[in-house]
Design a protein around this nucleic acid. Sequence first.
DNA 1: GCGACAG
DNA 2: ATCTTGTCGC
Length: 251
Amino acid sequence: MAEIRERFRPDPSMNRTQMEALQRDIAQTAVFEDAVDFDPTTVTVDTPTPETPIVAGVDQAFLDDQIVSAIVLTRGETVVARTHTTTPIEFPYVPGLLSFREGGPILDAFEALPTDPDVIVFDGSGRIHFREAGLATHIGVALDLPAIGVAKTLLCGQPVSSTAALAAGERVEIVADETMSTPDGTTVGHALQTRQYPNSHRINPVYVSPGHRLSADTATAIIDRCRGAYKLPEPTRLADAAADEAKDTIE
DNA sequence: GCGACAG
DNA sequence: ATCTTGTCGC
């Protein structure tokens, strides 16, 4: 179903220079402004209506030499489609080059889907990346679909203020720092507190950044609307469970 | 050389 | 990401 712009496909056989060149190309093609066909404020993980946008959650699980890539499509709390692929691992984990390890398998999984989602949620960074070309940006551009990156830890960039004691729903801007090709001070994402305990113990926020066709503000607003009972947004949790489940079936 | 980094 | 029991706290 998904149309893939082949010239952007992450090729694991490229050398580092070629990979970084492709990332610069990806970054220039990426649109960090709202260009979506749905109303972001209608995204929900609860009871859906016929107009509720379809959100895709994507996540991977690993075996010795194979990678399991799972995608779960949901309309509100309703699972619309689910698929997964198992592929040989072709590239190691290298900070800054994650899309070359996970991107191929993810695109394979998208090709197996019966329908395209309105927006995709990835487990990793989007614009919060040295060359503004994180996993969410790379695959979002390759599919030309709205994409958002949600990372559990910060790859680069700096919060404009402390993220230590945020209440659920609160956010802090992440701005570009000197390690990035982006001009210093550019807002590239947000630290979003998806969940918080009433008292003492603290939960770390997640780091949301636009991947493609979305502004940082809207990307974060969408993830905020995907908050469930856990730290990770619901689409990511579902995909995570699907990947683990598929993995257990294999081993 | 120092720093330092998604999954 | 993955290997893993118990354990502290609401």
